[in-house]
Design a protein around this nucleic acid. Structure first.
Length: 582
DNA sequence: GCCGTTTTCGGCCCGACTGTTTTCAGTCG
């Protein structure tokens, strides 16, 4: 048995290996499309196979892949992968990640010099063996030496919030130039992805050369990777790559659309353009002969010409949004302003830095109507978790607290899910709480079956309202633990437990994919900051972005509900689903 | 490898920049 994620990774790997083999590029794409299809299924492939579903009905799955996938769902290796692994050294996949080295060059290096990985590549480059190869030269060799270093240092994508912070001074520097009319960050940053590979800047200006020059002169630019009339790429001191494009006002919409992506979304739009006998590029939507521009000044204009509604960037992942934009079925996505309740936050009673006064005041200042105090339970020693005596004292303090007008403060706790799935607090105490967030903070390494059973058991506990950061991942630091989230979500639906979208930029847990799967399965979501300091209540927007990427509307998220409905949900009163406001 | 009210074969999105070339392939987004 293999998870969807695992099968999708293997399909992706087949695509990468095929490329190294110089295979038909459309065959490569077929595997990558199949990887996406499997990744985005909202139920386990294995279940579908067991039920006898015809996999050929899935997009991008034909006769051959249907057979391979049926085997893969039950743990067999994919045929194509088995063969490719025997033919191609796996280390070549790292070689391709070196900037300037693609599949063709990697293959040449392997065949001519026996390069099978980064170490080989660096040795051959430093020894000067590469410059003489056909198609290579001194510049390429030099760039490879730098590139190997870069791959080793900056292997992973960065957290979006970190990138946001890192580029703030750069954006200010660019906006400072008088000939910059408009400056936008496009790419995966604009789409709100949880991690970012590089930064795409789009500038409207009448003086492109000056804009390029200005970027090159930014004092944190470590290396200019390339610079031409329309685009410039640089590497900043911390290794972040920034790509700049400059366009004229009349092409701004088409360019923004193009550089926002995703690539797959753009492919869909171009297909539609072709169907209408037009062609779409970053300069506009054109008649087939290319001399008449149909649209291009704004994104909305381009979408409209293609018979589509303007589509929020967070949805542009080719996950069905083009069809929805055609039929008017795009969701009205949740906004930061919709959120009126914070249900997971800490104070200095455990590991937070803010007192009850400071945290509740901060919540009120942000316009929240409900703020839950959910400090840690005692099992987490390092957080100074509260035992029942200390918790009783906290409640006394809450009773005596001068609560800001308009704010409702809830008694709660982030209770540890112990190894056996029981909760780290007595039931009689849990019963007296307004809200219980249950989370895993230990024993991440349990086998999947045990981890799943553990969490499902906690979700079944009658007092639990929210499952906190359900996968335990820390972006760039720790992988999600092994757990069958399909089973967890099913239990959450049955027991009226909300699945958390933890808004902390290091967590964003569950991610956009699982949030969408959960909503599809009938679960409700809860976006919380897990704030440990007053300013961290501002992290909310990161969670909302992920919710938007998951196609969530305000109604899907309990933190937007008016108090009577939220109260009914937290008390597990039947009828909370029948809302009055949606 | 997938896909089809124009098709079961012949398509499958578009352009900039670089380096190594001698007119363009490879890489990248």
């Amino acid at each position: 048995m293999a998870s969807n994620a695992r099968i999708a990774r293997d399909l992706q790997l087949i695509g990468d290996l095929l490329e190294l083999q110089d295979a038909n590029p459309f065959r490569v794409r077929a595997y990558r499309n199949a990887a996406r299809t499997v990744e985005e299924l909202n139920r386990p492939l294995k279940d579908m196979v067991d039920e006898g579903a015809d996999l050929r009905e899935l997009p991008g799955i034909g006769k051959d892949l249907a057979v391979q996938l049926a085997g893969a769902a039950h743990g067999e290796a994919l045929d194509a992968l088995r063969e490719l692994r025997e033919q191609i050294p796996p280390g070549l996949l790292d070689v391709v990640r070196v900037p300037g080295v693609g599949p063709k060059k990697a293959r040449a290096l392997w065949q001519e010099l026996g390069v099978e990985g980064l170490d080989d590549l660096e040795r051959e480059a430093r020894a000067g063996h590469i410059a003489g190869l056909k198609g290579f030269g001194a510049k390429t060799e030099e760039r490879i030496v730098q590139g190997v270093e870069q791959v080793r240092r900056f292997a992973e994508r960065r957290r979006r919030a970190d990138v946001e912070q890192a580029i703030a001074p750069l954006l200010a520097w660019m906006r400072d130039l008088d000939c910059v009319t408009t400056l936008d960050v496009a790419g995966s940053f604009r789409r709100g992805r949880d991690t970012i590979g590089d930064v795409d800047l789009l500038v409207v200006s009448e003086d492109a050369p000056r804009v390029m020059e200005h970027l090159r002169r930014y004092d944190d630019v470590e290396q200019v990777i390339g610079s031409g009339d329309e685009k410039t790429s640089v590497l900043l001191g911390d290794g972040l790559q920034v790509d700049l494009r400059v366009v004229e006002q009349s092409a701004f919409g088409a360019a923004l659309l193009y550089f926002t992506g995703s690539k797959d979304h753009n492919v869909q739009l171009r297909r539609r353009a072709i169907e209408r006998d037009w062609t779409l590029n970053e300069y506009g939507l054109w008649s087939k002969d290319g001399d008449e521009r149909v649209a291009g000044a704004s994104e909305a204009e381009v979408y409209e010409a293609l018979g589509l509604r303007w589509t929020p960037p967070e949805l542009r992942e080719d996950r069905g949004e083009v069809e929805a934009a055609e039929t008017g079925a795009l969701p009205v996505l949740i906004e930061v302003e919709d959120v009126v309740s914070e249900l997971h936050a800490h104070t200095d009673w455990s590991d937070g830095t803010g007192s009850l006064e400071v945290m509740t005041s901060a919540a009120a200042e942000r316009g929240l109507a409900v703020f839950a105090v959910t400090d840690h339970s005692p099992a987490l020693k390092m957080t100074g978790g509260l035992d029942r005596e200390k918790l009783l004292r906290q409640w006394e303090a809450l009773d005596a607290l001068d609560v800001p007008t308009g704010l409702r403060v809830l008694r709660g706790m982030e209770v540890d899910i112990l190894e056996d799935g029981s909760l780290d607090m007595d039931d009689d105490m849990l019963e007296r709480m307004d809200v219980v967030v249950a989370s895993v903070h230990s024993r991440f390494g349990l086998p999947e079956a045990e981890q799943t059973e553990r969490i499902v058991r906690a979700v079944q506990h009658p007092q639990v309202n929210v499952l906190g950061h359900p996968t335990g991942r820390l972006l760039g630091q720790r992988e999600a633990y092994a757990v069958d989230l399909h089973a967890v979500i099913a239990a959450a639906v049955e027991h009226d437990v909300a699945i958390e979208i933890n808004a902390h930029p290091a967590r964003l847990d569950v991610n956009d994919h699982w949030a969408r799967v959960a909503a599809h399965a009938g679960a409700v979501l809860s976006i919380n900051t897990d704030a440990h300091a007053p300013e961290e209540l501002g992290l909310l927007r990161h969670g909302v972005l992920q919710a938007r990427r998951a196609w969530l509307t305000a109604a899907d998220v309990i933190n937007t509900w008016p108090w009577p409905r939220l109260q009914a949900f937290l008390a597990k009163e039947p009828g909370w689903r029948e809302s009055s406001d949606d």
